[in-house]
């Protein structure tokens, strides 16, 4: 549905996107990951036809974004990061304008405006001025305009940024509901979000492709089944450390600075045995007569994933083509 080939974009001497290559199939939800300034927004702007690439190309639904811009734009619904809306307009009026600007026929436009208002839950706000809406509702209006005309491809730049947790869950489940039907590109720098919503991940850094593959890439250690656990238990630190490092599947055990009181101590375990290790660790601690206070998997930060992927550890078998 989306093909990106050797895509580069330079602004003067700065290279924003450097020979990027990836593709998204119909029905996939692609998580487009990277730290700030990695080139996510630039890539998305090229895909939506805001500016042309310096070299290379991209096609949406088979239409090249440079040579057939109108056809490509007709297939895309876009939500920019800053959610730029005409704040002096009312919600319903704004959506009717967008429907017109997208070239929908009058009858269909009315139907579509109703549909998207219902889909994102803003039907009761249609008469309100956009400038009076909260950030969450603006985000929904932004999403609504992207959905107008039922485009096969959705490009969403950080769609959950600035929302409260409840809204994040709502928007995420809405995006998830598109899976199989629409092709979605979703940029983010929040790992759990991508892991929860996406069926495919593309990671870029400084404009270059770092890795692409399934969301399992995002777990520390990636697809090799390695992980990291945080354990807090009550008991003598030395003894516990010995105990923990003997558990099957634990590769390394390091003690943390005692944080909560004298009797408790925390450990970080590097594991290599998949999810059973967690149970093994719990059994070991409790079985030895100590109290287990906390046992949780450590999710990697984006930086850690980058470190791992860029230092090219084995296990990135799905890594960059």
């Amino acid at each position: 549905m989306i093909q990106v080939r050797e895509l580069s974009k330079r602004f003067g001497a700065t290279v924003a996107v450097d020979r990027l290559d990836f593709s998204v199939e119909k029905g996939e939800i692609l998580g487009f990951l990277g730290p700030n300034g990695a080139g996510k927004t630039t890539t998305m702007r090229i895909l939506t036809g805001f500016f042309p690439p310096s070299s290379g190309g991209a096609a949406i639904a088979g239409h090249d974004v440079v040579t057939e811009p109108m056809a490509a734009r007709s297939s895309v619904g876009y939500l920019p990061e800053s959610v730029p809306l005409y704040v002096d307009m009312r919600v319903g009026e704004y959506l009717r304008f967008v429907a017109g600007a997208k070239g929908l026929e009058k009858g269909r436009a009315r139907h579509e405006v109703e549909r998207v208002q219902k889909a994102v839950g803003i039907s009761d706000r249609r008469g309100q001025l956009i400038k009076q809406l909260s950030k969450g509702y603006r985000q929904r209006v932004g999403l609504a305009q992207a959905l107008l005309g039922d485009p096969p491809v959705l490009i969403l730049d950080e769609p959950t940024i600035g929302l409260d947790p409840g809204q994040i869950v709502e928007i995420r489940s809405l995006i998830k509901s598109f899976a199989g039907d629409k092709t979605v590109v979703l940029s983010s720098h929040i790992l759990p979000e991508v892991a929860a919503t996406c069926s495919k991940v593309v990671i870029i850094n400084r404009g270059r492709l770092v890795a692409q593959g399934s969301p399992s890439l995002l777990r520390p250690g990636g697809a090799a089944g390695r992980g990291r656990l945080r354990v807090v238990a009550q008991g003598p630190a030395q003894l516990l450390a010995e105990l923990l490092s003997k558990v099957k599947g634990v590769a390394a055990c390091s003690m943390e600075d005692a944080a909560g009181g004298e009797a408790t101590c925390g450990f970080t375990l590097d594991t290599a045995g998949g999810s059973q290790v967690q149970a093994e660790v719990a059994r070991a601690v409790v079985g030895s007569g100590h109290d287990l206070i906390e046992l949780s998997p450590v999710t990697a930060s984006l930086e850690e994933v980058f470190m791992q992927l860029t230092t090219n550890e084995p296990g990135g078998e799905e890594a960059a083509a």
């Binding site: 702007r45 939506t48 036809g49 805001f50 811009p69 109108m70 056809a71 734009r73 007709s74 895309v76 876009y78 920019p80 800053s82 730029p84 809306l85 005409y86 704040v87 967008v98 600007a101 997208k102 070239g103 305009q145």
Partner: peptide, 14 residues
Amino acid sequence: RTGTIELLLSYPVS
């Protein structure tokens, strides 16, 4: 200034 041009030009208009 408000960036709405980015959204406007993502619609099929020249």
